[in-house]
Nucleic acid binder design. Sequence first.
DNA 1: GCCTCATATGTAATCGTTTACATCAAGCTA
DNA 2: TAGCTTGATGTAAACGATTACATATGAGGC
Lengths: 358, 358
Amino acid sequence: MTASALKTRSRSRSDKPNRPATVLKDVARLAGVSSATVSRALNAPNLLDVATLTRVQDAVRKLRYVPNGQARALRSQRSFTIGAIVPSFDYALYARATSSLEREIEPRGYALILASNHYDLKTELRLTRALIERGVDAFMFVGSDHDPELFVLLKEFGRPYVLTWGIDRSGQHPSIGFDSQAATRTMTEHLIRLGHREFGLISAPHEGNDRARERSAGVREALRAHGLDLKDSHVQYAPIALSAGTLAMEKLLALRDRPTAVVATNDVVAVGALMACRKAGVGVPGEISITGVDNTDLGATQTPALTSIQTPIMEVGRLAANYLTARLEGTDVEFQGELPFEIVLRDSTGPAPSAGSA
Amino acid sequence: MTASALKTRSRSRSDKPNRPATVLKDVARLAGVSSATVSRALNAPNLLDVATLTRVQDAVRKLRYVPNGQARALRSQRSFTIGAIVPSFDYALYARATSSLEREIEPRGYALILASNHYDLKTELRLTRALIERGVDAFMFVGSDHDPELFVLLKEFGRPYVLTWGIDRSGQHPSIGFDSQAATRTMTEHLIRLGHREFGLISAPHEGNDRARERSAGVREALRAHGLDLKDSHVQYAPIALSAGTLAMEKLLALRDRPTAVVATNDVVAVGALMACRKAGVGVPGEISITGVDNTDLGATQTPALTSIQTPIMEVGRLAANYLTARLEGTDVEFQGELPFEIVLRDSTGPAPSAGSA
DNA sequence: GCCTCATATGTAATCGTTTACATCAAGCTA
DNA sequence: TAGCTTGATGTAAACGATTACATATGAGGC
């Protein structure tokens, strides 16, 4: 059932990029003006006489002139490039927020340069240094867990940045996001109201992931407020992958005092958990309620459809773009640091099984 | 059910990036060598006396020196940046392949610069020009549908590139991918063997999307080979979104000569179709078989689990990275142009409902 | 008719590296 | 010992734009 073929190709010499066919000076010569005038035609056209401007523009077109960004950036200290460093692209959510950022900056003449830190803060620091080296003007990061050195670096090079997904309570850093802790707290309270008393938690690993930490904290907060307990045995850590969610749920199912409600810190592991129940023949929501976070298509299309939390990820990307470009252009910025989330009730949650049956 | 707060912040002056605190010359002075020697310490350390080298390295550390990539790129005509232009990030597959590319080039000192063309070839051309302007050394594109001018541009500036996902049959362009047409042909043949005679096709819009075209062609090819017909009414075009897939399927369900097998050109619309059947109470695979392409988590976790085609997307990203870096380094490249796919049978396909029942 | 000012353009220095070429010392050959 | 090679380093000219400053021209005020 596979189609395959082999095709090889080899080259012996390096393909060093060509030097540009035409440089600014050539345009100047053809248009019969100085290089300064060509530069102005490109960057501040309204300074020029209309006749001169069109003459230059014709020359640009005729010579198929493409400016050299390196030279421009070297001299002007601006590369019109924005960097985004995300934990991973395997979780589609980060990709979408980044895409939303890109969509917003592209028409403004900025390009996106992207890297993923694989949830490692040292990697993130290294990547950021590499991007500063490349002249990236401003940065978007995810979350508030970062190497302290990162901010030293950013400050030293005067690069604007914004932390996303979460809200920086310290007030030290500009941030755009939503309250992860409140999100899972609200969700947990909902489950408590449904009569659940025995809870399970499946969380992404906490290290370098403040979102997961806050979401876990939200669950604990709600439980504590209602005098309920969350036993260590009822907390499972799972990397963001279906199989990990399934494995975690299997452990929870094996417990003597099995939870009747399981809160997962993201949709992927929640769906993994759902699969575990399906496989084990455990009824959802009859015997166990399961919830996720992020309201993905993945969760929404399950049977039963996953109750989740709609998080404003596209908005995060959009606002981050606005904030950063405004900082770079020197215009006033007024931005909403905290965005709303919304609980989306579906079919994976229901009343706790009647307590008397035990 | 929402949490929200307002937090504003404003700035009046532009945050133009700082000029770097230290430049190469400073390092040279501190180390007591010429600037050429510092440059060598950075780029060709083995040319230097060990004592000199360590002296320079100490100076670099002490001054927290970060080289200026613009200047380096301007002079050396190399930016150590690779560009990827994908149709969209909303379909997670492109994000994953790109991520795989990034993972591969990052340790080799290259950064990824990313843009999406939103399935528009003119946009792609514009983006490519913007990236060449920024000194991007090499490019990855998706598919074989491109503005002819694109290749003129790439050639003019001597930028290596590779087309991915598909295989360029013309032999004009280096490409890495799999045979989309064979994939859906194989799938369709499987369905024919299961006894299906009345087919439906849900495809992504063909314009600027050769993958969709080829996948559609694969279905038609198999049907033609078996003397079967695909009526125009049985072909629906749907952008890659659940709702579009649902809508398309609803149209197919409304047909008098309703298909017993529906091939979709991607998992997302296939799942959308599945939802339409669920909603309409149409049994899958009892009354209708449905298949997707790409073998995503989304499809695999459905009830019934979606039969699909495993495509080698991570491998595509990895090999594209290998090819491009090799071209840039001038080392010999031998790359597999065509990768295997694999049909993954699950529960959304089954024998055609017995013909006699009509 | 002179001075001022605004507008349009040119001159040339500059951004921070890399790299061709030059230099010099030391080691080796014959 | 002269001559050649090799290895380590320095000198200075690029790379291709932007931009501070200078200049020229014409309009307007008085």
